[in-house]
Simulated assay, not measured.
Amino acid sequence: MARAAKATINLAALKQNYLLAKELAGGKQAAAIIKANAYGHGAVQVARYLSDVADAFGVACIEEAMELKDAGIEQPVALLEGFFTADELELVNEHKLITAVHSDWQVEAIASTTFDQPVTVWVKFDSGMHRLGFDADGFRQALQTLKELPQVGQLVAMTHYACADEVECEYTQQQLNKFLAVCADYDLPVCTANSAAILHWPETHGKNTCTDWVRPGIMLYGASPMDQNTENSQRLQTVMTLSSALIAVRELEPGEPIGYGRRFVTEQPTRVGVVAMGYADGYPRHAKDGTPVAVNDKMTRIIGKVSMDMMTVDLTDLPDAQIGDPVELWGEQVDVNDVASCADTIAYTLYTGITRRVPLVYKS
């Protein structure tokens, strides 16, 4: 491949992050969340590498589940949003998928379907996210109906936290209290704690809680979801390094504009490097001047707007940088959260936005 742009995936770091989630959850079962092509890291490759340690995998939809099953993944796969149409239950049955249930019509669809063996159902309670899930009365009614169905095997209660990434926010505890209250009358396994809750809210998953399952997502990929660094978030290992190379170097006098819209104008003699990376690769177009990058392992910054295939960086303090030198856009040196902050977004969007033009290169 002539073009240098690539995303290198450190699979050993990925596994360590999964094992960290297990450790922090006191050894509880952990469903590795690999929806959205494993947050841009390659779902099949990630699942295969975690297959010797992962208790289950979580995906968003039947298409993602089938990609794993067609690739020979044998671990249980959970449909976190459940099935979207009743005819998907044929595949749930055939491949022994776990399905979430969050609406009455899904309960009715299961009741109207014949299964070769009972299906495992994760019943979602809306504890305050107000996205998917039953309210308290609907949750109790769904559980009662599902318990009486021969089509249903194990039932698991689940919920999702809206603000677990906010270290000082009390809303997570309020959600947990609501969830525990509605579950108190049922002897059911519980699935709770996303990455942020695993990292910072031990009451949602610790050894002395009722939790049986946790759901690590973004933390698997080495990015912290927290609004500030914590002791546990600093233990995460970087998984993806997005890199490319310099393809041109030029010298500009003071007062010269760079890039579309002339957003950046030089204030002094400036050495400019052009990098083979742009928004068609998934790098954010709206990254601000000053967004960090590393050239030859030395930190510098973006100057000028990111274009479709290229971006420009400041080499003024890097007089030895030359065409062909490596550039890290995020990874071991450049924190993906810092890049996300400079683009007014989050690491999730950066990872999932990597396009097919960027090859994924795996190392273990």
Rank of each mutant, 00 (worst) to 15 (best):
D185I: 04
L242V: 05
N177W: 00
R263D: 14
E203Y: 11
E231I: 12
L176P: 02
Q268I: 13
W213N: 01
I218K: 01
A294D: 10
G206A: 09
A294Y: 09
V249F: 10
Q173R: 15
T211E: 04
W213D: 00
P216A: 11
P202E: 02
V239L: 06
L180G: 06
A245S: 14
M240F: 02
E253D: 07
T172N: 13
R262N: 07
D227M: 00
V295C: 03
G217L: 07
V249N: 04
A294T: 06
A181C: 04
K178W: 10
Y171A: 03
T230M: 06
R285H: 12
W213L: 00
K288Q: 07
Q173A: 10
D297C: 11
R235M: 09
M277R: 10
T241M: 07
C210Y: 05
A196P: 15
N177S: 14
T204S: 05
Y279G: 11
Y221S: 10
H200W: 11
R250E: 02
M240W: 06
T209S: 13
K178T: 07
E170Y: 13
G290P: 08
Y186W: 09
G282F: 13
I258D: 07
G259P: 00
V274I: 07
Q175C: 08
A184L: 01
V214W: 03
G290Y: 11
P257F: 00
M226Y: 01
T204I: 00
P254K: 12
V214G: 02
E256W: 07
T211K: 09
A248G: 00
Q173I: 08
P254R: 02
R215G: 03
A193V: 01
S244D: 01
A276V: 14
A287V: 15
N208T: 13
H200L: 06
S195L: 03
V265M: 05
T238N: 08
D289F: 05
Q173D: 04
L188R: 08
A280P: 13
V239K: 09
T270D: 09
M226L: 13
L246S: 09
D185T: 13
Y171I: 01
G222M: 03
G290S: 13
G282A: 11
Q268Y: 15
L180V: 05
G273I: 00
A245T: 12
T209K: 06
T270A: 01
D187F: 13
C183N: 07
Y186L: 06
C210A: 12
T172G: 01
S243N: 04
F264A: 09
